[in-house]
Design a protein around this nucleic acid. Structure first.
Lengths: 237, 237
DNA sequence: GCAAGGAGAATGTGATCACAAATACAGAGC
DNA sequence: GCTCTGTATTTGTGATCACATTCTCCTTGC
């Protein structure tokens, strides 16, 4: 075995279980991002770098960087006077987001199905995970727990999309959810969870049957109904 | 990236024609972003906040913010040791980006067609603009000018997509191009412009005829061929 | 009662400094 | 030749300060 290989791997000091140091601005970002996707921040709400930093016990710098990332992704907006607010929804934005979500998320779902089709074990694990999340979702609906519903709903979708093992597509879709998140919460708060129909069981069944067409349709209908709810709730003051 | 100066706006803004004050980090961002989309930065190239700031005659702060935005959009990457590099391409990324580009960009194109169908004047203006860009593109191919080709190609697509008046979809697609840009340049540099076939005339014809199906097909083929070129060029060292 | 105005607080932005980690580089040793 | 090692430089990150602008709120004047 000729040892003429590694040319610059010597700076890799103690590499066993190397745990990279947590970086403040990433921590702020991921927490804030999750809060937005799960609908914990209402549209139009204002943020400030100093206040956000104080909430995480850091200076303004990490907050600035986290906010900058979320502005780049369309989750936060800058007013004409450069104030930072949670993005507001408009009818045309709803329409565009729907038009983007349907093709991208159905593709992710079908990719997940095909991925799991080759491995019975991982498929069973995926179905079990989705069923578990869906049970929590049903429970949240029954209890009328708005926050738990939003959380479980996003977890269901991304548990499915994660299985697609398509990081680029997943990143794009996460960007879409970042723009939708704040309104999911508004919707279920206004409509109440009682009127929500759980479309996810059909998706699980289709996944179990390995039926890509059925899965695609289930996801499409879930998206269309969800976005329609947002549209209805937005048009009514 | 050629070094450029940014006018420092610390002085009192002019009272007449009172626009928003130019902000350094946005200037850095937009120029860097354009450079990436047009393929002026090679994949794997490293950047640093201080160097980038120096190129624009500003401190590290605006450079940090611009870089942060581009990292969020997937155009730049952080190495495990937090160095900043232009994103590299992989076969799976090519596949995913293609799968995202086709549905999104064809939708933007069809939207542009339908928008312009209601206004003969704006439609003529759009066609004229596209033809003008396409002429520059042909010229670049004939001259073998790689940089001009990349520039004209991106301008053609975004001139069309701008006409769709769909800012959310446009933003998503811009994010995809940010991830592709560095490779467009590599591709045409390797293959040479001689082998490039101009697929845009069919799109212009379809737009002129108001034929959405034809336009959709032309855009789809253009995307598929372009991404195939990237794939071929990437697989060959 | 209410609009106008002004003082004070808050905010985004940019620059600068400090610090730990990573990298680059030169030289020693084999 | 090569690898190892110690040192100097570079780099990302975080904190802090300065400054112009914007926002908030209370007083003033009618």
């Amino acid at each position: 075995m000729p040892p003429t290989k590694i040319k610059k791997a010597r700076t890799k000091a103690g590499s066993a279980a190397r745990k990279r140091a947590p970086v403040a601005h990433e921590e702020v970002y991921s927490r804030l991002r999750r809060a937005i996707i799960e609908g914990q921040l209402e549209p139009g709400r204002s943020l400030s770098v100093r206040t956000l930093g104080a909430q995480f016990s850091v200076s303004a710098m990490p907050a600035r960087e986290a906010i900058r990332r979320l502005v780049a992704l369309g989750a936060l907006e800058l007013t004409p006077t450069r104030r930072i607010t949670v993005a507001r929804m408009t009818p045309s934005k709803i329409e565009e987001l729907t038009e983007a979500r349907v093709p991208l998320e159905t593709r992710l779902a079908v990719r997940a199905l095909k991925r799991s089709a080759t491995n019975a074990k991982s498929r069973a694990a995926l179905i079990a995970r989705l069923s578990r999340i869906d049970a929590r979702l049903d429970d949240a609906i029954a209890r009328g727990d708005v926050g738990a519903y939003s959380k479980a709903n996003s977890e269901f979708h991304f548990a499915l999309y994660d299985a697609a093992e398509a990081p680029v597509l997943l990143g794009v879709v996460e960007g879409l959810w970042l723009q939708i998140g704040p309104f999911m919460r508004v919707v279920v708060t206004r409509l109440g969870t009682k009127k929500l129909v759980d479309q996810h069981k059909e998706a699980i069944d289709a996944l179990e049957a390995g039926d890509a067409k059925r899965l695609e349709k289930a996801i499409r209908l879930d998206i269309l109904e969800g976005m329609k709810n947002i549209s209805d709730a937005s048009s009514r003051p």
